[in-house]
Design a protein around this nucleic acid. Structure first.
Lengths: 353, 353
DNA sequence: ATGAAAGCGCTAACAG
DNA sequence: CTGTTAGCGCTTTCAT
């Protein structure tokens, strides 16, 4: 490929083509200040004809305003984040603000670099996943002087503002529901992520609530990498071979939960009679499995939306007062794998074991 | 929340704190030019102590270089794009380039706006999904004078360079395989997306190959929105009620294919004996289903990686010659739902119908 | 309603 | 090795 390296067009080119000052062109292109309809038209035509695209680098430097919002998340592999991003993107559409995304891979050090990188563009706001940051990251965010919204989690003290759910409470509530349905030999299967603070907090809240009823987690196992569905199968199998008397499995996400569910159904195990299951996230993706896995919505899209709205509301000129903490309340989706109470048999149910 | 609006620090602040010229600070911070170890240390300390974050807006304007790569994709809802993005992100890590993502929602007009928006930041390259663009978008990209890589699709003429697969050929090859296995009453189920050119091209190639054997698509149906797994179930059911003699269903994506597969297995239908199935994309997510759906890898991650590498290779200073067309060759993953030839029975197989 | 002048904060290019 | 001088392309401010 060889294309002639053209000098990018500048305001001056348009100004010459339209026969007006650069200033007037600038005014027309930004709809700022009074310009006669005739001039406006000439300028618009010239700009379009030349294919002029303004240089925001220069514009931002001069104007002191940047229409960028930094979004810092761990990864796109974890299905929750694409949805959060969609929410952000949706809410930002029409505000003139644009998301810029960076990934941390759950590494505090990478987060630090990414934040530095993004802040160096002087964005109008930052949305960052989680409340746990390195001291250097905290310092940068605090110093930045722009709105900072920490998302996903509300168990902790936000630097500036936060939008999310309490994962500790989410774990507690699921434990509560499980106990209420009479399960007692309860196991946990999850990701091995020392740095996934939200999964950790869920497990902590979960274990805490169980212990209040004098119950300990009967068995547990952690995994990393690979297809979650397949992992869910394997782990469930190993778990039940090791601890055959387990009557409930709490999974740290819906995908491994679905894997476990499929494995159990294939073996004709009575779910939720003999064994109950629950996951976490409420991934819509799984609607359509033979049975609906019990889960809890992580409010992903709404978190994204609200965080973005918060940033937008804090732009200079907007006098809206915004909360510094938005604690959303996910509710349990009971599905077909948690409630023990009898229900009409469904077509496709395997015979009880 | 009320934080004191601080004046952001500038090079001058660091320069004064360290007792050297702004230029020297600039050199240290960019590791450019020779600076004595002692001075370097003093500058580094001062910058860190003050919490200085350079202003790239100014830097880019002065230096004429922007470390941003614009990535323009339809949406994150379609699972393929998070993976493409991951590939891009991976390949860009370490090059000093940073992806900036924009979404088009499959709308040419939105694409136009997003491109305009992104080009106004004078990025060092553009990665954009698809080969179909509005005339205005084409003009902008051509004018931009920066490397443009169109991804996902190679059926068409790239503006500058492209990386992807031929969806037409993908459709043909799947048709070929299906015919080779002896299926003859073949249906198509897919998304109703007049603007998803890749799905369209797959279907075209597919139908074309069938017709070469004198076979027409026996039935077809399109959907939009909702959970793909559930849609796959519904559509498969309706299809088979309407056309009970169908012996193969080609799905436009793996998720609806998986829905169909689950529905058929629940009913004890012999797959792939009585009816064969195939999807598209090769989503790893589904590894762990009772049967592995036949599919074709869309090379998502690799497309992202190669596109990013191409952009990186075209940066000024890099003299690497890059191809203008990279046509990846996806291969059929036969799974358990396409090959009719007898195979050892697997545990969990339903009895033949 | 339009134009002219003065930077925004940084880096390229040149001096020393 | 370090400093000085000009801008980068736009917007702000002040004239006209």
């Amino acid at each position: 490929m060889t294309r002639p390296p053209r000098r990018p067009l500048t305001l001056r080119d348009v100004s010459e083509a339209a026969g007006v000052s650069e200033m007037t062109v600038s005014r027309v292109l930004r709809d700022k200040g009074d310009v006669s309809a005739a001039t406006r038209q000439r300028v618009r035509d010239a700009a379009k004809r030349l294919g002029y695209v303004p240089n925001r680098i220069a514009g931002s430097l001069a104007g002191g305003r940047v229409n960028l919002v930094a979004v810092v998340i761990p990864s796109l592999k974890n299905m929750v984040f694409p949805e959060v991003l969609s929410g952000i993107s949706e809410a930002l559409a029409g505000t003139g603000l644009q998301p810029v995304v960076g990934f941390t891979d759950y590494l505090p050090e990478t987060e630090e670099q990414v934040l530095y990188e993004m802040l160096s563009w002087r964005p109008s706001g930052v949305i960052v996943a989680g409340l746990e940051h390195s001291p250097a990251s905290r310092a940068m965010l605090t110093q930045s002087g722009i709105p900072v919204v920490e998302i996903m989690d509300t168990d902790g003290i936000p630097i500036d503002a936060c939008v999310g759910i309490s994962h500790r409470r989410a774990g507690r509530e699921m434990a509560e529901a499980i106990l209420a349905e009479g399960y007692r030999r309860i196991a946990f299967l999850g990701t091995k992520m020392p740095l996934d603070h939200r999964a950790r907090k869920r497990l902590e809240g979960f274990a805490e609530r169980l212990s209040e009823d004098g119950i300990a987690i009967a068995d547990r196992e952690f995994y990393s990498g690979g297809s979650a569905l397949a992992k869910g199968r394997e782990m469930t199998q190993r778990l039940l071979e090791r601890s055959p008397d387990i009557d409930f499995i709490y999974y740290s996400n819906d995908m491994i939960g679905a894997g476990g569910l499929l494995w159990l159904l294939e073996r004709g195990v009575d779910v939720p009679g003999r064994i109950g299951l629950a996951g976490f996230n409420g991934v819509e993706l799984l609607d359509g499995l033979p049975r609906q896995l019990a889960t809890m919505d992580a409010c992903r899209r709404e978190i994204g939306r609200r965080a973005a709205e918060l940033i937008a509301a804090r732009q200079p000129g907007t006098a809206i007062v915004t909360p510094e903490r938005l604690d959303l309340s996910p509710t349990i989706a009971w599905g077909d794998t948690l409630r023990r109470s009898t229900r009409p048999a469904k077509q496709g149910d395997p015979a009880p074991a």
